[in-house]
């Protein structure tokens, strides 16, 4: 039950985009088309899940015993960057088709704060391995859902928006309203 609660709150009320503001850059930048949004969220899910597992193990079995917790930021970002490169190479060679659809999104992920954010939150919150896994997956699902909804809305925004509000402002306000609504889902 605890894991279910964790999962539901991870998707909805503790949504990483709308309440923790992680992954805002792809959220605002790349999500004008639903197709891009789906590709991006898939790429984020894969990278985040894999790097969460690795960083979790790294943190608990290397950094904590050696008393070098303060190095976590730099170690984690290093792991993520390597992960992205390795994935890129694997996909490029083995899954040509996947590369065509995901290839352009993967390099952007290194600097996606959702990935680093989730890995850091995992260790900061002191989750067990299972909790960590559930939290990571639910966050990624939450990210994907919100990204897809948001892109579908942005795709359909009217051209008649007041001039000053065009572009980012209306996107922020839409996101704000979404956050307001998601906040009611406790």
């Amino acid at each position: 039950m605890n894991l279910i609660n964790l999962f539901v709150s991870g998707v909805l009320s503790e949504n990483i985009v709308l309440t923790k503001f992680l992954g805002i850059c792809p959220f605002m930048g790349t999500s004008n088309k639903t197709k891009d949004a789906i590709g991006m969220s898939l790429a984020v899910t894969i990278v985040t899940t894999l790097s969460s597992i690795i960083t979790y193990l790294l943190y608990n079995y290397v950094l904590v015993p050696t008393n070098s917790v303060y190095l976590k930021t730099i170690m984690f970002i290093f792991v993520i960057a390597c992960m992205v490169q390795i994935l890129l190479i694997i996909i490029k060679n083995k899954f040509k088709k996947l590369y065509q659809s995901l290839g352009i999104y993967l390099p952007l992920i290194t600097t996606n704060c959702a990935v680093l954010g989730i890995t850091l939150l995992n260790v900061n919150s002191g989750y067990s391995f299972m909790q960590m896994l559930v939290y990571t997956l639910s966050s990624c699902l939450g990210f994907s859902i919100v990204l897809c909804i948001f892109s579908s809305i942005r795709e359909n925004l009217s051209e008649d928006i007041p001039k000053s509000f065009k572009g980012y402002p209306i996107a922020f306000i839409t996101a704000g309203i979404m956050a307001l609504i998601f906040g009611r889902l406790i």
Partner: peptide
């Protein structure tokens, strides 16, 4: 208005007002 006026709004305006009041 922010979405461009009648016919362009994404969310039901009355309900936005409502949940704003609730919050």
């Amino acid at each position: 208005i922010v979405f461009g006026g009648f016919g362009r709004n994404i969310f039901n305006p009355a309900l936005i007002g409502y949940i704003f009041v609730v919050a």
